[in-house]
Design a protein around this nucleic acid. Structure first.
Length: 278
DNA sequence: CATTTCACCTGGTGGC
DNA sequence: TGCCACCAGGTGAAAT
């Protein structure tokens, strides 16, 4: 479900509620798909650990975990990595609350709260990284919010694929998904099928600024709730109210009234204004 | 190597 | 009401 703004919103919300808390008990469902690390190893590694902080890298939620036995030591000794896939949710609840269908993980905390991972389509992934054995989590691509003009332009140089497909490639940029690819291309006035390597330097700079503006605005509004996205408290976002093209097929363009087109590109529904985007 | 296609899943919606 | 086709925030493996 979630792209950079939604994941950022969730990570902030979870961090505010569980930072400093201790994991007392971990429970996992019996479906194998969501577990990049086997559930028994995850449970063993999680139980007893202290949550130092929770933050976002690309579309991944990173929980930095410390070992209480080495008290005074605030260096993380493990990371719990949560990827939400298309329909994943990470919620902070009370243990007594009703357990939603498709709940795959429950972490009971010393404070009495509980972290729950719910994911109907099971495209999400949970992973535990032991920092004593392995390096910490790193996204492959660049962070779109902080990338500079030269670095951004270099990503697309001499690439033949469509600019939208390039925006979705997480080894180039990390965190951009279908909504914000379409919305940033609209705001930059660029057609999604244009070959990435053929964009002018000026177009690429318009795209970079449009992407950063859209992502920052969406974070401010708590993300886009298209069908069922909610943050750590179960609250919906509001950026969907400012979508110009995404899921607006046939509706009038907000600037020129031309009906919005939908095509298939890189296997994804792709929305654009045939008049505003060249 | 770069690029494209497809499988992986459940659930909601709209047509008939 | 039921049945069916189609669509949905992602990604990694296989094919081209």
């Amino acid at each position: 479900m979630p792209e950079l703004p939604e994941v950022e919103t969730i990570a902030r919300g979870v961090d505010a509620r569980v930072r400093g808390d201790q994991i007392v008990e971990a429970w996992f469902s019996s479906h194998p798909q969501p577990f990049k690390t086997p559930p028994d190893l995850q449970a063993k590694g999680l139980e007893g650990r202290v949550i130092l902080n929770v933050h976002r890298t690309g579309k991944h939620i990173v929980c930095e975990l410390g070992s209480p036995s080495e008290d005074k030591n605030t260096d993380p000794s493990a990371q719990w990595i949560v990827h939400l896939g298309m329909t994943g949710r990470l919620l902070v609840t009370t243990p007594a609350g009703p357990v939603a269908n498709h709940t795959h993980a429950r972490l009971r905390l010393a404070s009495g709260r509980e972290i729950r991972f719910v994911d109907p389509r099971r495209f999400g992934r949970l992973e535990l990284i032991d920092l004593k054995r392995t390096a910490g989590f790193r996204g492959a691509g660049k962070e779109p919010l902080t990338i500079g003009a030269d670095e951004f332009a270099a990503l697309f140089r001499s690439r033949k694929l469509a600019i939208k497909a390039a925006l979705l490639n997480q080894t180039l940029l990390t965190g951009v998904g279908n909504i914000y690819a379409d919305e940033s291309l609209f705001r930059a006035g660029i057609r999604p099928r244009r070959r990435a390597g053929r964009l002018t330097r000026a177009e690429l700079e318009r795209l970079r600024l449009a992407l950063q503006n859209v992502l920052q605005r969406a974070i401010r509004l708590g993300g886009s709730s298209v069908s069922d996205y909610v943050d750590a408290d179960g609250v919906r976002g509001f950026f969907q109210l400012e979508h110009c093209v995404y899921l607006r097929t046939g509706e009038p363009c907000r600037t020129c009234m031309t009906p919005i087109c939908r095509i298939l590109l890189a296997g994804r529904g792709t929305h654009y204004c045939p008049k505003c985007q060249v």
